[in-house]
Design a protein around this nucleic acid. Sequence first.
DNA 1: TGAATAGTGTCTGTGAGACAATATTAT
DNA 2: ATAATATTGTCTCACAGACACTATTCA
Lengths: 280, 280
Amino acid sequence: MINMEKEYTSEEDFLKDYDVSIFDRPSVTSDICLFSVSSENQNNYRKLSKKYFSVLLVKRNNYPYKGKWCLPGGFVGIKETSEEAARRVLAAETNLHNVFLEQLYTFDDINRDPRCRVMSVTYMGLVDKNKLDDSLFENASWFNITTLEDNDYYHVTLDNGNEQLKFVVKKVLKEETTDRYKFEIIENDSLAFDHPKAIISGMERLKNKINYTDIVFNMMGEYFTLGELQQVYEVILGKKLLDPAFRRIIAGKVIKTDKIQTGGGHRPSVLFTYKRNKES
Amino acid sequence: MINMEKEYTSEEDFLKDYDVSIFDRPSVTSDICLFSVSSENQNNYRKLSKKYFSVLLVKRNNYPYKGKWCLPGGFVGIKETSEEAARRVLAAETNLHNVFLEQLYTFDDINRDPRCRVMSVTYMGLVDKNKLDDSLFENASWFNITTLEDNDYYHVTLDNGNEQLKFVVKKVLKEETTDRYKFEIIENDSLAFDHPKAIISGMERLKNKINYTDIVFNMMGEYFTLGELQQVYEVILGKKLLDPAFRRIIAGKVIKTDKIQTGGGHRPSVLFTYKRNKES
DNA sequence: TGAATAGTGTCTGTGAGACAATATTAT
DNA sequence: ATAATATTGTCTCACAGACACTATTCA
């Protein structure tokens, strides 16, 4: 091992003496907030299907938190990056490859895992749910998200049709000079670890980025109507948008096709595609 | 250790068998991009002192990268968060406590450290350099940053008066749908590890946030003129701003005091203070 | 025919960019 | 008096919010 008194004169010598195992150090997991938008068919044939913002959860089948739901994730191996670990886990749970992933935050509260000190490098992932609806791993399930914001409190309900999970997270500004928040878990029935924090962080990130990036198109199929796209914006932002304003905003991001969607009891809608930027 | 065949029936049983040491896992460091703005006195008594954007570096006195400069940082202990580790390191290097810190990104390329697999949870820190000018640790030094952006290439020069360090980093869009970049180190004389990436990431983060948060006030003293504040904006953004526009933008963020700064060969300037928001 | 969504036109106010003009100092 | 910075006024243009209006389908 490294001798602190010894002046090493070459990197080789140093590395030979270097023994990582002497350091008692944190473990690292990679967790993924995989978001999508689910459709629920309306009984009225004329109405559009209602959309829900949804997140993928996995039921834990062992301790700790056995029986509780959590974000898909796992330990980061010594020969993979945290992003590679995230992709490996996602492929196992959803059979999806090439998912859009963006690093969210590294959560490392000392007691966030009862087993030992475990840090979580958390990623936000976005998918078009229609691409994978039936290929889920048996323990995984999509939960529709309903959020009520009451001052600094987020009251969140997750619903997969069978189970309802609830948690309340308090949003506290870390520094008054910036927009970074600390999230405190006030109430949490059935989610494992500090994953409510990760879910809220992911939702906030997406809410922000939808306004100044093209990130939303990772959740869309190849062709979509502007009405559908607007619905997606609306469930993510949690508010209605005005049609003309919306169309102005996304006008530069989409291309009109010659395809038309008919079938609803109303004026048919032109299908659009994402307009990729030249820079790529 | 955990027996995969065994169905554990209580968390206690599980934890008893759980032995972290069986996992070969990455080590974790915490590194800090500490930014500030330095002043260089002009020979002309009428002119304002020239401002430089600067970063704190530490000279490595052991392998790996012995003799090279790097960001202050160190291994994260088992009983501290990465942010606590960052504060511990900063206190040792600069004698400063209560520094503004914001988590930047977790860098974890597999070979970023020649010793072994080491991930770096990187923080951006901001300080008012006047508060600490002389209390640096002997191995630490402030480097003025000069950046030339040539298409997707950043040509960066760091200068502490004695040494000039240079590196070139290529900025590659990770996904065309968002604003996340991958940085590739094209040229790097004298900085250790992948720290050029961290420095660029920090600069980009600050450039962005200066426009929609009050983050810049972490680099200012209690009283400042609007001219000084504008200079700080200008060195961070790397461009000149128009006076009236600038004043409009920051009007809501500052409070006029009855103090006045005289002494330059020109109209004296009113001193302002940061206007903290009510929400805090 | 009418409920429902698709899509467009246009007014208004806000705010940034640009530039001109005035104010005040130490030497 | 002058060089330098401090500070304000105002015009224009782009754009988001708001609302009204027209278009088109299918049970």
